[in-house]
Design a protein around this nucleic acid. Structure first.
Length: 972
RNA sequence: GCCGAAGUGGCGGAACUGGCAGACGCGCAGGAUUCAAAAUCCUGUCCUCGCAAGAGGGUGUGGGUUCAAUUCCCACCUUCGGCACCA
């Protein structure tokens, strides 16, 4: 920490000195303020809704207005998007470039609990501060379109979208959401029935003859309560009793995505599982579309993959196992129905509803104890115990449907109640987890797949070993033990290291273990045996063995055949499962959007009418959540209890929405931010959407980006938006580390304050440096000296144009034609910057601009036109100095809407080029030829080189390879 | 453990589609300017050997393909990021 550079105030010092001496120095502080005021008062960056020009929507992930203000990571993405926005304006696009505030959130509320300051006050202060900081960077936002998620005028529409979710159902056949009123109509008219599983069922093709489908009921047969229940099972927003991630420290539940390894993402507090009634959003209905539509967006592959993995689609089968001696069936989900013959036992999640019923009297106590432990375990503990596969036998048996064998039923917390059916068939020979469990509890391991060549085991036995036996393929546990013993013996005898160049894992482990003096021989042997046994499990595909009539089938065929077989016999069916869970959407907080819902005394839930929105937060001075898990809103009696017009008494829903709610749709509100009759006008949505470029941090890869895609698809289904995906192109800016190469944090003391950088070097230097550091998407460390570097570059440019003594144009600026070389470098620069901005490689664009300025400095007579052109291409990067110089060069208008300069390939071309001359790929000399020299000319010139001649030294020339404009390679 | 990304000078990084590795910037060294400093300008700066001319080596490691490899292929090592019993 102590080695951080000491020189940090040099520029301020220098600036002071220069100010005394020269009135024309590069006074960035003054210049930047001047142009920021100019842009703001003239509304230079206002986006036009009715405009014949092509549109371009460039969006930043809007910030959470924290008390700490901006950190240097924010301006990185914002600068990149600002460069693109300014570039596109000059290219003739009608650009929408907005910003806003994701202002609901826990920190303001926690501060309120501590100090009693209302979160709205803190939030407003933070917004004001951050807006000041952002404005000081000169971004070209349309400030009239700001949104603030905590503004009732905004969250009115967040609540409105919630009502859409609440009042919609998902039509599985059509794979889209529809108003729930349509479902009710269909039920009333007899087009749909209620199936035995509580799902809607289509009528038979000819109902008059065939009657209603078997096992279904008519809508009119249902009681009011049943109708209500049925509809709640269909709504995309529903209330459910679920085991939630409860964080006692924060006093709220958290979404799965907000819990990392059993610890809360915010604050790092422990999280436990606890059953509670919560609001859920049925995002799982959209799982397929969320996955499939990723192919239509231009996003980084890594982000797409993260989302695909998060959705986690897996295709397999559900198989029914009868419970021996009970009239019960346990359904399991498996992706490997082909291994059914190897299922030697079964495991249920401890929470599985059937456990108590089937447990034998003798096992009752053990099962009860285990369930209690599993329940009290936090997620963190469960993860910790991952290696040790605990479990208890229920005493009950299931019948394997393929061979009618009786297999034991166990419970274990490695089976999750929330995935699949909460029960698995265990195939220890071909599943790592089952294999571990079987080994621990002494259950049978029966191989039913012979791995194919690709997945075949290669035994880690060098041929030098005394062991004689198979070195490849499947071996029995006994054989494995023999191998392990022989390895130990060899190592013990000092015959290791091994003859093979790369020792296998097993060998390395063996050496490690033998070297460890504290271990007894028996212990080593046992540990090695464990490793050998574990590696015996083969999870890959292959050819079926020990599988009755299916023996000999390759995995893929087997899967299909057995699934059909099960289906025919009524023992199972094809099934799809997702890792994605429904989205836990309620939080026990004050500082969030209230749900527009009422609970009637009879337990019925009704939604507020759209016209009654917004439902605003009540005033209070007590923001503390209750220990029981109730929101602070539950204590505000006069808000909580209301009487309906018909005299019925009702209570408001006291949960609030999570922070993600507001950020799910803010990009739509920018289109029409002041509309109080609709969330946005359809025409505007059609004109501006989709977002052409979205820049933000990769930390939102699965949270925000998945949630907002989900909401967008709902809005698309209901006809409120015209595109199936909201964000066409996405770029993640990389993280900026401290000067010590570590993550910036207060505790490390390596945080860089943007305010200080702007005061010392100016916003243009700050912007330029953030872009010059390296590729936008990579993680890179901050360097104050690097800031000085780009600052020097701007200073140099300034002095090339302005006389520091007088503040007037430098005497070298002449209204003359540029010489050939200057013109060439200028056009090379236009070309490179244009191409680099289009491909987001801002760092190399800046190096090219530095090359131009370095050249400019050498000239005694500096052509005005060329400088003006250069100023234009610099302007998206360093807009303040560009505007100032543009004006000082005599231009009346802002350069924001000037045309982007065109480059001329012919002018950019070098007249003479230097070629390397290689002999057998080694560079021997260089030659200079005209750019259009033909091959023969180049060959002659290359062969004429003295050094080439000496290298060839009389040998025969076999071939001469000429790559025009690159090199010549002589092969001898 | 699995998945993904990346390893290039003292540092950040550059290199089109296989074609001169190290652009540009930082730092450092020497010089100019200055009473002196700051700022500025000039020169040098991948490594090794050499006074020099020059010679050799070099893009994480080891192999391979090619006239030619930072770039393509195989194996391995390291770092960072994500997931973590999802059957």
């Amino acid at each position: 920490m102590s080695w951080l550079p000491l020189r940090q105030n040099v520029p301020s010092f220098r600036t002071l000195r220069t100010m005394e001496e020269n009135k024309g120095f590069y006074n960035f502080n003054e210049i930047e303020k001047k142009w920021q005021t100019f842009w703001e008062t003239k509304k230079t960056f206002a986006a036009n809704d009715n405009d014949p020009r092509p549109k371009y929507y460039v969006l930043d992930m809007f910030p959470y207005p924290s008390a700490q203000g901006l950190h240097v990571g924010h301006p990185e993405g914002y600068t990149a998007s600002d460069i693109v926005a300014r570039f596109k304006r000059m290219k003739g696009f009608n650009v929408l470039h907005p910003i806003g505030w994701d202002a609901f959130g826990l920190p303001a509320e926690q501060y309120a609990v501590k100090t009693g300051t209302h979160p709205a006050i803190t939030t407003q202060q933070n917004i004001d501060n951050m807006r000041r900081q952002i404005k000081a960077l000169g971004f070209s936002y349309d400030w009239d379109r700001q949104v603030d998620t905590t503004d009732p005028g905004y969250y009115k529409w967040t609540q409105w979208i919630f009502l859409k979710l609440f009042n919609s159902y998902f039509d599985t056949a059509e794979q889209k959401a529809k108003p729930i009123s349509e479902l009710i109509t269909k039920l009333q008219e007899g087009d749909l029935f209620i199936g035995p599983d509580g799902l809607p069922v289509s009528a038979n093709p000819i109902p008059a003859i065939m009657g209603i489908p078997v096992g279904t009921r008519k809508w009119i047969e249902l009681t009011e309560v049943e109708k209500e229940e049925f509809l709640n099972n269909q709504r995309l927003a529903y209330e459910d009793e679920v085991a939630v991630n409860w964080c006692p420290e924060l006093g709220t539940v958290l979404a799965n995505e907000e819990v990392i390894g059993g610890i809360s993402e915010r604050g790092g507090h422990p999280v436990i599982r606890k059953p509670m009634r919560q609001w859920m959003l049925r995002i799982t209905k959209y799982a397929d579309r969320l996955e499939e539509d990723l192919q239509f967006v231009d996003w980084p592959q890594s982000i797409k993959k993260l989302q695909t993995d998060w959705i986690g689609k897996s295709i397999g089968a559900e198989v029914d196992f009868k419970v021996d001696g009970f009239d019960e069936i346990i359904t399991v989900f498996t992706t490997r129905p082909d291994t059914l013959f190897g299922a030697t036992y079964m495991v249920l999640a401890p929470e599985h509803p059937i456990v108590d019923e089937i447990t034998s009297p003798g096992q009752k106590q053990a099962i009860e104890d285990y369930k209690k432990i599993a329940q009290s375990k936090s997620d963190l503990d469960r993860t910790d115990l991952a290696k040790d596969k605990s479990g208890v036998f229920t005493g009950a048996y299931a019948i394997n449907p393929v061979n009618n064998e009786k297999i034991q039923i166990w419970i274990s917390d490695y089976v999750l109640i929330s995935y699949g059916t909460g029960a698995i068939m265990s195939v220890p020979a071909h599943d790592e987890r089952d294999f571990e469990f079987a080994n621990k509890h002494g259950l049978e391991i029966r191989p039913v797949v012979e791995p194919d060549r690709k997945t075949a085991l290669t035994l880690p036995i060098p041929t030098s070993y005394s062991y004689e036996g198979p070195t490849e393929g499947i071996v029995s546990p006994q054989e494995w033990i023999a191998i392990a013993d022989s390895i130990i013996a060899e190592v013990k005898n000092g015959q290791a290291p091994f003859t093979r160049p790369v020792p296998t894992k097993l060998e390395k482990r063996a050496i490690e273990l033998v070297k460890n003096d504290s271990l007894a021989v028996d212990e080593i042997r046992n540990r090695l045996k464990d490793i050998v046994l574990t590696s015996q499990c083969t999870a890959g595909e292959g050819i079926a063995i020990n599988s009755g009539e299916f023996t000999g089938l390759p995995t893929a065929d087997f899967k299909e055949k057995i699934t059909n077989w099960l289906d025919e016999k009524g023992l199972g069916k094809k099934a799809v499962n997702y890792k994605l869970r429904d989205w836990l959407f309620s939080r026990q907080r004050y500082w969030g959007e209230p749900f527009p819902l009422l609970h009637l005394e009879d337990g019925q839930i009704i939604a507020l009418d759209e016209n009654d929105l917004p439902l605003t937060l009540p005033e209070t001075d007590n923001f503390k959540p209750s220990d029981s898990g109730q929101s602070p809103l539950a204590k505000i009696e006069n808000w909580l209890n209301i009487e309906l017009p018909n005299g019925q008494k009702a209570k408001r829903e006291t949960n609030t929405m999570p922070q993600w709610a507001g950020s799910c749709w803010y990009y739509l509100r920018y289109l029409d931010p002041k509309n109080d009759r609709a969330a946005w006008e359809k025409e505007k949505e059609k004109y501006w959407m989709p977002v052409d470029l979205y820049i933000g941090g990769a930390e939102h890869a699965v949270l925000h980006l998945l949630y907002s895609r989900f909401w967008h698809k709902l809005l698309f289904d209901l006809g409120y938006v015209s595109t199936p995906e909201p964000f066409k192109k996405l770029i993640n800016q990389g993280m900026i580390l401290g000067e010590d190469n570590q993550k910036m944090s207060k505790s490390r003391g390596n945080v860089v304050n943007p305010d200080k950088v702007i005061t010392d070097y100016g916003a243009d230097s700050m912007r330029l440096y953030e872009m010059f550091m390296g590729p936008l998407e990579s993680t890179k460390p901050w360097s104050m000296q690097g800031v000085e570097g780009v600052h020097r570059f701007l200073n140099k440019l300034w002095r090339a144009v302005i006389d520091e003594q007088t503040g007037l144009l430098h005497s070298s600026i002449k209204d003359v034609d540029a010489d050939e070389e200057t013109l060439r470098i200028l056009h090379q620069t236009i070309r490179k910057v244009t191409q680099n901005v289009e491909t987001f490689r801002f760092n190399t664009a800046i190096s090219q601009m530095m090359i131009f300025v370095n050249h400019l400095m050498k000239l005694e007579s500096r052509p005005k036109k060329a400088i003006e052109t250069f100023i234009l291409i610099l302007s998206p990067f360093a807009p303040h100095i560009a505007e100032e110089l543009w004006q000082l060069l005599g231009n009346k208008n802002t350069l924001v809407y000037e045309n982007w300069p065109q480059f001329d390939e012919n002018l950019a071309k070098e007249k003479e080029i230097e070629l390397a001359v290689q002999v057998l790929g080694k560079i021997k000399d260089k030659i200079v030829v005209p750019f259009d020299a033909d091959e023969e000319e180049i060959k002659q010139k290359a062969l004429a080189c003295e050094k080439v001649a000496s290298s060839i030294a009389g040998k025969e020339i076999k071939k001469i390879i000429v790559i025009k404009s690159r090199l010549v390679n002589i092969v001898i």
